[in-house]
Design a protein around this nucleic acid. Structure first.
Length: 225
DNA sequence: CCCTGATTCGC
DNA sequence: GCGAATCAGG
């Protein structure tokens, strides 16, 4: 499988949607979890919370594959804090990511000299890159949380979360567009799409002269061009 | 063990 | 550019 534009778009959409690399790989098909991660990084899609990242990347793997391994877990030198004269961005060594932090008087305003990638999800939540400093107590606490009633924009639209084995997954529109959704009609049993879209997705191969015509497909008449 | 994402490096 | 191998934390 190759990374076509469509597949890259889907990767971007699913990745920013928070799906894990495994889920995305399964969704796209034909690629491994590692392929998805590798591609995501190559695309510059920035990390979502990684289980193993907040540490400074210890310069490991200096050994060549052909050589032997140090085989010593104690080979780690003492953690050496690295001097950063260029960027004096003091970060607490143990950041509490989502903890509500009391507003500090001397809190610095958010840096504006560097582009920040922030996406806005449903409900208005903000997705931040892990390196981002938590905003100084951003959420003014609302009265209480009530289930948002579906806006007219989203009403009757089949979202990614609504997908299951029994409904048509034919995409309507393009990922990233505000009204992107899925067909949602009852799917043809055994197929990911409804009968109508199966007819679009699966086109009968033109029979060659020396080949028997293909048997009729189970979802109705094949379209022969 | 399973999962996760990050990184490296041969291709 | 690609992704398997590997690492490392949960």
């Amino acid at each position: 499988m190759s990374w076509t534009d469509e597949r890259i778009d889907r990767l971007k959409a699913l990745w920013s949607k928070g799906m894990t690399a495994s889920q995305i790989a399964e969704e796209l098909g034909g690629v491994s979890r590692n392929a998805v991660i590798g591609k995501a990084h190559r695309l510059g899609l920035q990390s979502r919370p990684s289980p193993v990242k907040p540490n400074e990347p210890a310069a490991k793997k200096a050994d060549k594959p052909a050589a032997d391994k140090p085989a010593a877990a104690a080979a780690k030198p003492a953690p050496r804090p690295e001097a950063k004269p260029a960027t004096p961005a003091p970060r607490p060594a143990a950041p509490a990511p989502q903890a509500a932090q009391p507003a500090q008087p001397g809190q610095q305003p958010p840096r504006s000299d560097q582009p920040r990638i922030v996406s806005v999800g449903p409900g208005g939540f903000l997705r931040q890159t892990p390196g981002d400093q938590p905003s100084p107590i951003p959420p003014a606490p609302p009265r209480r949380l009530v289930p948002a009633k579906p806006s007219a924009e989203v009403a009757d639209k089949t979202s990614l979360l609504d997908l299951n084995e029994r409904i048509c997954k034919w995409p309507i529109g393009h990922p990233g567009e505000p009204d992107f959704h899925f067909c949602g009609a009852p799917s043809n049993p055994g197929f990911p799409y409804c009968v109508e879209h199966c007819g679009v997705a699966y086109q009968a191969q033109m029979p060659r002269r020396d080949r028997r015509p293909p048997p009729p497909l189970p979802f109705g008449g094949p379209r022969v061009r």
